[in-house]
Amino acid sequence: MIYFVRRIVGIIPVLLVTWTLVFIVLEIIPGDPVNLMLAGRPASEEVRQRERERLGLDKPVIVRYGSFLVRAVKGDLGDSFRTRQPVTEMILEQLRPTLELSAGGFLVGVTLGVVLGVVAGIRPNSWLDTSAMFVALIGVSLPSFWTGMTLIFVFGTTLRWVPIVGDGITALILPSITVGLFLSGGLARLIRSSILEVMNQDYIRTARAKGLAHWVVVMKHAMRNALIPPVTLLGVQFGLLITGAVITESVFARPGLGQLLLQSVLNKDIPLVQALVVYATGVYIVLNLIVDLLYGVIDPRIKLEQAT
């Protein structure tokens, strides 16, 4: 319990540091926010002054910083410069497609990663291991925008096996593969080495000495323990998923947070960028917390205190 509290309190400085960095970065982005806000609309000096006041730009930096932090905590990060819609609303609108893509990509990535990793780990240095690791290598080396475009061209344009821009689950196949391939390579390597490590543990040797078949040992005894370390990576995968989303959504013309982020940065829609980064850090930190806690639950041998 004390651990929980400590972990949660520990989040505060992290959020503070990140949000401060975001604030600073956006402060130094060139361009007059009022010009951006008015997005080229003709406006008298009076209108501009009113906008400046409305955006709080007439106040000193430190006051704006304070109010930014307060608003970040409250989850009220203002209205978009471009559409004048509340940014939180805009983000929620784009959440679903990105979650779908992430779920699909995660499913493909984890399935492929686990299969490759296990195949490679069971018989290290066999031809199976080499082939599986080669596939994993391809996975981490393929530029995902190239993969995506090639998949569309082959399976969409040429073979017409899957819809190109359609809705529904079939339209999710190619984007999921694109994101999944990217994820699977790293995961496969991790699982393989994790299995190798576990196989050297005493209890596995004991099991083997008892004369159990190789695959029984692997599946029954090694697997559970071997999969624990990769679980901790799930938090890190979040970053990869978002990266995958930015590229994949752009290639597949899918709506979503990745597109929203890219557009907001390119359009210098500052409140939207702020909100996206604030929420992304929040989600990332909470995910990591959950993973840390899960880690303790899955493997009781690991004392929570150590996990800090």
Binding site: P13, V14, T18, I29, I242, V277
Partner: peptide, 27 residues
């Protein structure tokens, strides 16, 4: 302590988001 925290946050934070953000500042 603070530095390590920053490293931790940056580690898993979507690097492309960070990169795009920096390009927005620098051009």
């Amino acid at each position: 302590a603070v530095g390590s925290r920053i490293i931790d946050v940056m580690f898993g934070f979507p690097s492309i988001v960070l990169s795009i953000l920096i390009v927005a500042v620098l051009g």
